Simulated assay, not measured.
Amino acid sequence: MSGGPGAGAPAPAPARDGIPLGRIAGVPIYLAYSWFIIAAFIIVVFGPLVRRSFPYLGAGAYGVALGYALLLLVSVLVHELAHALLARAYRWPTAKIVLTLWGGHTQFGNVRSTPGRSLLVALAGPAANFLLAGAGWLFLTALPLSPVATLLAEIFVWANLLVAIFNVLPGLPLDGGRIVESAVWKATGSQDRGTVAAGYAGRIIAVGLAAAVLVPPYLRGDSPDLQTVLLTAVISGFLWMGAGASIQNARLRLRLPEVKAGTLMRPAVSVPSGSPVSRAREQVGTHADAALVITAPTGQPWAIADAGALALVPDHLADTTAVDAAARALAPGAYVPAEAAGSELVEYLAKLQGSEYAVIDRNGAVVGILTRDAVLNAISARPARRRPTAP
């Protein structure tokens, strides 16, 4: 369960989100197929317990367990709606709510926020669960209920209390992680540095949770049962992986301003389409280590000359063979300004086909070649690997 703005991957196609449940306040709601896993787990584990407590229910005990799963689903939906509705009050674009195996998430569009607003939107979800727990408690105390209804109401109250308390723990991917993120964001002026700090706080919580559950039994000379170990491992693993993803994504965004076409490109020179191979060789010979770009009659980059193919053209045919015969075409529109940088550059390249792009200066002259690998390596902080070129 999460709230607050942040850069992320593009929204997946609705078919991958799961079963559409409709819209609430204009926000599309989807039920992920993974939710049925947790529903089945609740029915299998909780059903026999209900049957032992209420033998007269028979197989109906599993229907009560299903009721608990549905109540939990409603609690998660209200949690995510609280995120979405407060975000709507701040005029944040809310793309959708997806209810999943791990609870759910609310996806926002690109927004400009502040530490305070981000924190309030994040904490709106746990606040909604506290209110649901209070409403359930009033329901329990104000109305005479059957034993089964009392059981479901009590579980509803405790489930919402646990969801609320768990989610305010100060570490990502939990909502309370925005507390750490907002504090560091306020102090440093960088949301991404705050996200990194909150991600490490989330990892501490993951380790602390596992230690709190598994260590005490061993100190008493006992050992936790297998079900407790597995559940703790799943929850701690989920927190650790979610925190790690937050750290990685924030670090990528921190590196984006340094991703510039002009600094990542390989130098290049150009010749017009139809130029003889002899002229292309002269250009390459006078500009060591430069790539050769062929421009169309319009002046736009059209293709890249292949050094190996140029070398294979016999000398006596070099004046009569067009350089176009030794070239690989660029994708349509595959050229970028040398000053293009950051997310603007990455988003633009993502729309283009191919993996090579000509780089042009302010006058439209070709000055370099940029590869997709060079950009990806710069974002991930891996050393760039240049393809070997024929002499």
Rank of each mutant, 00 (worst) to 15 (best):
S2G: 15
G6F: 01
G6Y: 00
A7L: 10
A9C: 01
P12Y: 03
A13K: 07
P14L: 02
R16I: 00
R23L: 00
A25G: 02
P28M: 05
W35P: 02
F36M: 06
F41A: 12
F41W: 09
F41D: 00
F46G: 00
F46M: 05
V50S: 05
R52E: 15
Y56D: 15
A59E: 09
V64M: 03
H79P: 03
E80C: 03
H83M: 01
A87F: 06
I97P: 00
G103P: 06
G104K: 01
G104M: 01
Q107R: 11
N110L: 08
G125M: 02
P126I: 05
A127W: 03
N129C: 06
L131A: 14
L131Y: 00
G134N: 12
W137Y: 15
L138M: 04
A149Q: 12
L151Y: 11
L152I: 04
E154R: 15
W158I: 07
L161K: 11
F166S: 01
L169G: 07
P173V: 07
L174P: 05
G176V: 07
R178N: 13
E181C: 10
S182A: 15
K186R: 15
S190A: 10
T195G: 03
A197I: 09
A198K: 05
I204R: 11
I204P: 08
V207F: 09
G208H: 03
A212D: 08
P224Y: 10
L226C: 04
L226P: 07
Q227F: 15
V229G: 09
L230C: 04
A233G: 14
A233R: 05
I235E: 00
F238S: 01
M241D: 13
A243G: 14
G244T: 12
Q248A: 14
N249F: 10
L256T: 02
L256E: 11
E258R: 14
V259D: 06
A261P: 03
L264K: 02
S270F: 03
V271S: 09
R279K: 15
V284Y: 04
G285F: 10
G285M: 09
D289C: 02
V293K: 08
G299Y: 09
L310D: 13
L310K: 13
A318S: 14
T320F: 09
T321C: 13
V323M: 10
A326E: 14
A326P: 10
A327D: 11
A340G: 04
G342Q: 05
S343V: 08
V346L: 12
A350M: 09
A350E: 12
G354R: 02
S355E: 13
E356N: 13
Y357H: 12
I369E: 13
D373V: 10
N377G: 05
S380G: 04
A381E: 14
R382H: 13
R382P: 01
A384G: 12
R387I: 07
A390C: 11
